[in-house]
Simulated assay, not measured.
Amino acid sequence: MIVWLNVGSLLLGLLAWTLPFVTFRKNQLSLAVMSMGACALSLSFQIFYHHHLVKIGDWSALMDTSGAVAFASAVLIIVTILVNALTLMREKKGVAA
């Protein structure tokens, strides 16, 4: 069951990146909020997974994956913020024109 935290984290991260491109709504702000929420949940799943590894004492798994998880988390946050910002700026230009 714990392995689903990694799968859920990956799926929520992908959702965070794709939600800003959904154009069926007029208000992109709500999609941006949902995207940031998916990003936060994705990162939370990784924190819960690392907590599980600490609880079971799997120190080698922690040492092997902590660097990659930190890097992937930074990329997820940066790309999510950039994609949402670009989408909101595009919407703002469309409204002003």
Rank of each mutant, 00 (worst) to 15 (best):
T87P: 01
T87F: 02
V33T: 13
L12P: 01
L62K: 06
F48I: 14
S42D: 02
I56A: 06
T80H: 02
I77C: 07
L62R: 09
A16H: 04
G57Y: 02
S35E: 03
L15Q: 05
S60C: 00
A85F: 08
C39R: 15
Y49G: 06
A72C: 08
L29D: 02
L12T: 05
N84W: 03
H50L: 13
F21K: 08
K93G: 00
A32S: 15
M63E: 11
M36Y: 03
L76R: 11
A68C: 01
F48A: 13
A85V: 12
A70I: 12
L76F: 01
S44I: 15
N84L: 02
S44D: 02
Q46G: 08
V69W: 02
L41C: 12
T80K: 04
T65G: 14
S44Y: 07
I47K: 08
A70Q: 11
L29P: 00
I56R: 03
A16G: 01
Q46I: 06
H51P: 00
V69A: 11
L15S: 12
K55R: 11
F21N: 06
T18D: 03
T18A: 14
R90Y: 09
L88K: 10
A38F: 05
T18E: 08
A40W: 04
T23H: 14
L19Y: 03
T65V: 01
P20T: 06
R90D: 06
I47W: 06
L31H: 11
S30Q: 14
A72R: 04
M89E: 12
Q28N: 12
K93W: 11
F48E: 03
L31I: 01
I81G: 00
W17H: 09
S30H: 14
G67M: 07
